[in-house]
Design a protein around this nucleic acid. Sequence first.
DNA 1: GTAACCTGGTCAGGCTGCCTTACAACAAGG
DNA 2: CCTTGTTGTAAGGCAGCCTGACCAGGTTAC
Lengths: 163, 163
Amino acid sequence: MTRDPKDTSAWIPLPGLLDVASEALFVEFRAELEQSEYGDIRPTHGCVFRFVQGEGLRLTDIAERAGMTKQSVGEIVDDLVERGYAQRVPAPGDRRAKLICLTERGEAAQAHGRKLFAKVEKRWAERYGAERIAALRGLLEEIVAAEAPYAVPELAKPEPAVA
Amino acid sequence: MTRDPKDTSAWIPLPGLLDVASEALFVEFRAELEQSEYGDIRPTHGCVFRFVQGEGLRLTDIAERAGMTKQSVGEIVDDLVERGYAQRVPAPGDRRAKLICLTERGEAAQAHGRKLFAKVEKRWAERYGAERIAALRGLLEEIVAAEAPYAVPELAKPEPAVA
DNA sequence: GTAACCTGGTCAGGCTGCCTTACAACAAGG
DNA sequence: CCTTGTTGTAAGGCAGCCTGACCAGGTTAC
């Protein structure tokens, strides 16, 4: 299936391809999540589950990593607190701030979510080739680290990654 | 913060990686588009520019390919018509239907957009390796063709791609 | 110590992009 | 005809995000 690179009519821009692939993957994930006991978690909540771990993070930090405003993230956190997935604990040393961290249920949900993502990825590895998916992940990780380091939990901390 | 090497806390799910990459790419595209004479085209309008070409498409068809409702697409088309990028022409043989096609300006904008996408992709090819980006595209095209064929113009209709 | 400024978080209100429901015009088959 | 399906539109709603205004608590300069 060789294609004329000059043929513009059937050519799909890379962002479109990335989006459709992401969407397809996400649909598989959602389908499984919704059947679990964490079915009330909506996609929006992801911005918290993605970044919060251990001691917790300040609202401001979550917002920065997620590329959203504090207000938006605040609303999402409210919702997660109501649902029993997250909690706000006073930040030590600053009475203005609160650390947002997961409850036990929240951590269980996070772990379950990660497992589901891994499961779907593995399914795709079988479908499209393990090494190709691995290469895809490798390249994307490199790209994300370069283009949006603030969105990478592991790089957001004072631990500069060495390539 | 000591961490188990097998710890998954730094592991980013594939959809997240795809999204961030897509977003980064799209930002570069938008930055250039907004400086052009087509700066009033918003991301939403893409669902029309992506699929419409030549004689035009029915609203229903665009909606199906885009995975949206007719009403949503209809609104977007209204907007594009107002801005002089698209037009509705009566469909031959069916007085209910209209074919949505691009105006001359619309086609110029579409061509410009495609060029910009190609330009950004080329920039990334230089940045991350031409072969890796080519492999990325190849895999994604395969995935999209398998997972969401309706979203691929060339597969959506057995139309002669070459003029 | 205190005035001025910065920072973390919240409240209120608004917008965009999409959806659902309902419907009018036309098509197609008896 | 009459019925049923299809094309597109109208009206209204909702989720997810934003901006602006604000307060309580820190930080700095004098």
